[in-house]
Nucleic acid binder design. Structure first.
Lengths: 148, 148
DNA sequence: ACTTACTCTACAGGGACAATATAGTTTGAA
DNA sequence: TTCAAACTATATTGTCCCTGTAGAGTAAGT
């Protein structure tokens, strides 16, 4: 299960991607149209800003906008920012590897071997699918590379 | 991330699958060899028993053993018992579907569409891989069906 | 009977999640 | 220049779940 926060973040980015670029969008506007608590969304967008995904302008005509093109922001990147590692076991994470204290030798761990496959499959989808892909209902992301 | 409890459960089942069938194995033996807190393991095995995966015998010559053949117990089944739904969003779960309160129409939800693929990929591995597969280091589970 | 092992319920400590509160800063406009 | 709208930042709260422990009870072999 992904966290509510990650779901909000993804929905907010998708919403920003739909707006004409260059013109900032109010937090309050996103919060209303997406049914996200406004103060919570503020934290989320601030977090995304610190990671360079979005930019903001203050003041009355302020708001948020995507800083990078929507087709360069993957679901995996967002999830790692909000929820942390994607791997189902700490000993399978690429960004935050941690040995399992129980489990004598990693190489012969049956559980690890199976979940390594789960991790690969999951990352295959999440790291290949971008916010831009999500907007195009027609093409499944698998076909994107094939067509390009 | 799967829970520690689920990891223990899978390791315990793998350990039971390695034992000669028919002869029960002590909880304390599994607890020691697998580095699992004994009292915690008791709860886990009891839970597995209630779900019909293992059987137990009491008394001095008691212990636990697999009730079903190891190649009929999938990782997915165990995970659903211990951790609940595998789906990354409640609106994608087959066993515990719940609509997302936020999100106006499911059919046009971009986030849902992407995670539906993640769910399929994950289930593809977990529901096809059994405890017996985990024991055979050589054959990746994908090949199992092809060979059979 | 006596020991060993399984059965069951309850509960406690810690940490993560979801959100709210509060205070402050910046900017554009009246 | 004053105001209000909007973003920035940090702190705090309540709830829930995860992990593990405690303890009393039950069954079975010797």
């Amino acid at each position: 299960m992904i966290s509510q926060k990650a779901k909000y973040a993804l929905r907010a980015l998708v919403a920003l991607a739909k707006q004409p670029p260059g013109k900032p969008t109010f937090i309050s506007e996103i919060a209303e149209t997406q049914s996200i608590p406004k103060k919570f969304l503020e934290q989320i967008l601030l977090d995304m800003k610190h990671h360079g995904l979005v930019a903001s302008r203050r003041g009355k005509a302020g708001g948020y906008g995507l800083l990078r093109p929507a087709d360069t922001i993957s679901f995996g990147e967002v999830l790692r920012i909000i929820d942390g590692p994607i791997a189902p076991l700490p000993c399978l994470s690429k960004i935050a590897y941690r040995r399992c204290e129980d489990c004598k030798e990693e190489a012969s761990c049956e559980v690890r071997r199976v979940f390594a496959q789960v991790a690969d499959a999951t990352r295959g989808v999440l790291d290949r699918t971008t916010i831009a892909d999500a907007l195009e209902a027609r093409l499944p992301p698998r076909l994107r590379d094939a067509v390009a």
